[in-house]
Design a protein around this nucleic acid. Structure first.
Lengths: 187, 187
DNA sequence: CGCGACGTTGATTTGCCTCAACGATTGTGG
DNA sequence: CCACAATCGTTGAGGCAAATCAACGTCGCG
């Protein structure tokens, strides 16, 4: 029984111990070594993953053959490819562990059951989706407004600890610039 | 009673006539003339708006003083600033009618009531949020992968009718390029 | 009619990419 | 435990996509 997850859930909904236990019974623990994949392009994404430990990246290969990171996932975030998960098609995304990772898997099949058994989960995942949307829209605002240098500065001041967990070329990819140029910016 | 909305809702959830009537009772019709504002930066966003007719844009003023369009809203879409709506702070966004517009307003206060009275609405808005998220993430993929010319071409082939409803400088803003350069691309 | 909104054109500048080469560090197998 | 190979960051030269700025043409509307 993971107390982090309980606290996380209770920030969104009211839920008693029994229901919480129920929720937990739908989760399957999973571990991944560094560089292992949770999802590869071409596969269909079957579940959502709550990260209890470690760090992952969600990326795709663009038309020029370059890795483009959409976002990272760290402790107490969910990670998945919603497009593949909800539309059922093959994913364009890869989800790879940057560090050794511990996850709780919630398969989409069991989630539809869980919605019925513990109705508040409907609200839980609505709220999570809302926050996730707000986050991505804010990021778009940043990308439109700031040049590369400003993007980089604002990111490292906003996430000083996280920056030390990922190689710089991944940061560059996430920010939408080349590793060489990021290196030049750091002088 | 708007049949478009009923059909729209039933694409997401099962709902009987009585509940549907209930849903409708929470909506307030609203009209806006061309160039009128639904929301201005600094105000707090209080509701979501279902568009029954017309077209709007959601934009902000960036650090250099330029208008930056985040997205448009057309018939059978909801439009709102989720950040301000859900976090309660003043909005950085403006929502302005591009054409004369007809809306159905759903205030966030009454929505919390509606969630209790018609529980399926919880699922409805979860599903809408999921689709909205998928849409914005796909858009990010495009913006990372394509150059300005490719962006423009793919947009006009994907939305040939819509393109005729908005001035080109707004399209340019949405695509993240200058009106001058968009003009040059069209030769 | 006259003004404001919109699109266009061209000259110039610049932010960022590309490519290639070179350290420094890490890790891994013999 | 050492040697060699990845992996990662850096540097510099050259090029290009797109921005900036300014000016001008045109339409539609009050």
């Amino acid at each position: 029984m993971n107390s982090d997850l309980a606290a996380y859930i209770r920030r969104y909904i009211e839920i008693d111990e029994e229901q919480l236990a129920h929720f937990h019974s739908y989760l399957t623990p999973k571990k991944l070594g560094k560089k292992q994949y949770l999802l590869r392009a071409g596969q269909t994404c079957k579940g959502r993953y709550y990260i209890t430990k470690g760090c992952l990246r969600l990326y795709y290969i663009d038309t020029k053959g370059h890795e483009q990171i959409i976002h990272f996932g760290i402790e107490n975030w969910w990670i998945t490819d919603y497009d593949s998960l909800l539309n059922g098609g093959p994913s364009r995304m890869n989800i790879q562990a940057i560090e050794p990772v511990e996850l709780l898997e919630l398969s989409e099949n069991s989630l539809s059951e869980l919605y019925l058994k513990v109705p508040q989960t409907e609200r839980l995942f609505r709220s999570i989706m809302e926050r996730t949307y707000i986050a991505i829209q804010r990021r778009m605002e940043y990308m439109f407004s700031l040049n590369s240098e400003e993007l980089y500065k604002s990111f490292i001041t906003a996430n000083p600890k996280f920056v030390q967990r990922v190689p710089q070329y991944m940061l560059a990819s996430y920010l939408g610039i080349t590793p060489e140029y990021l290196s030049a910016l750091r002088k």
